[in-house]
Design a protein around this nucleic acid. Sequence first.
RNA 1: GUGGGCGUAGCUCAGCUUGGUUAGAGCACCUGGUUGUGGCCCAGGAGGUCGUGGGUUCAAGUCCCAUCGCUCACCCCA
Length: 432
Amino acid sequence: MADRAAKSGTQSFSRIKGTQDILPADMPQRHLLEETIGAVMGRYGYREIRTPVFESTELFQRSVGAATDIVNKEMYSFEDQGGKSLTLRPELTAPVVRAYLQNNLGKELPLTRLYYLGDLFRQERPQKGRHRQFGQFGAEALGSPYPEQDVEIIALAWELCRAVVPEGLDLRLNSLGNPEARQAYLALLKQALAPHAAAMGDRDRQRLETNPLRLFDTKDPDTQALLDEYAPLISDNISDEDQDHFGAVKAGLDSLGIAYEHDKKLVRGLDYYSRTTFEITSAALGAQDAVCGGGRYDGLVAELGGPATPAVGFAAGIERLLLAAGEAFRLAAEQPGLDVYLAVIGDGPRAKAPSMAGALREQGVSVMLETLRRSLKAQLREANRSGARYTVILGEDELAKGVCTVKDMADGGQQEVGLEALAVRFAELLAS
RNA sequence: GUGGGCGUAGCUCAGCUUGGUUAGAGCACCUGGUUGUGGCCCAGGAGGUCGUGGGUUCAAGUCCCAUCGCUCACCCCA
């Protein structure tokens, strides 16, 4: 198609790779999801915040981690006219923290609960459940170092995901300890695995050097076996305080009746996590099965120039959740159909129709008006297709008599109604 | 960046193995069966340079090469 257009001298355009057109048929479920998010967040006392789609490139380099793939090769960065490097946001925690600091939200209250919803941009190869522009929502609680705050965030994430995907979700959590303990652990891990590096694939051997924690993500069964055999686990190598914290988080989830698995191999990609990390996955998805991820990031606020502030948060993927939700959620989101299709025949009625439609709409009645000058037969077909409950027919005969014909599309019955009384009549009819 | 699968009507897809009349089906769309009456049914119609370019051949949707696009997976992540 594009080529044909190019040949004929005009140009046609197509979507940029990894982006998506969200068509009218897809919107109801999106709206329902957004309503659900707002409602549940509200019940937990979280308030919405929106930040710009682009930020200073440095913000992400500092927060996400200069060594991560996101920063290294996945950011959409560009220079503005003043030569400043800007980046389309690849995640939202850093921008939210930036806004929290810049607007002094932390000075107003000792604890700030925020939620967000928006599109992110990462230049990755698209696949099932992964796009270059994609939606995420999430929450951040800034100010509390205590495990009950971790529990609240996890419970909130779990409740929201379950509201959309009632079945097939799994919650896994782990503790990464504090940064100092993690450094010591990483050295221990490297030491333990170094003698077996030769047995690993190229990629995993590389990771052992650059980012040993990520080895736990490997899909290579041989490496997995090596890990099971020789690797010390991070949750066994954290401080007593961190152990206590993690124990309290688990106890809190237990008391809420939330089932989880302590996955000792769960590590998460972003540099800023500390202590609790968690992930919610769906069995209904493909390789990209994480619908939600989060954890504690006690060091990030200070890293971004603010006062030392403990924080916990999560982020969930809109497209992945909808994908996992499947047809049931789509059906639940179905919108009610049209109230009235206004069919007209002839010049007089056609001229009269817009003001009639206006009067109906003023009464809260939804009205679609024929603008194609089609035959009555075609107009009724259109009315049927659009799901209208009633079709109002206005022809020259009716107009002369000051009435119109109201047809009930369900049973086909019709009656004449005076034009003057029409709007009020419909308001009553549809209210009953 | 690497690998697999797929590009034929608006949509979902047959046809390709074994090249050969005018390239098909279902759904959707339009018209008629009803001088102004939907759904169901019946009859008819419109819609395609078979992703694009090149090659082989008397002949290519079908075989070969290249290229673009989509998709799944690796990597990484929500």
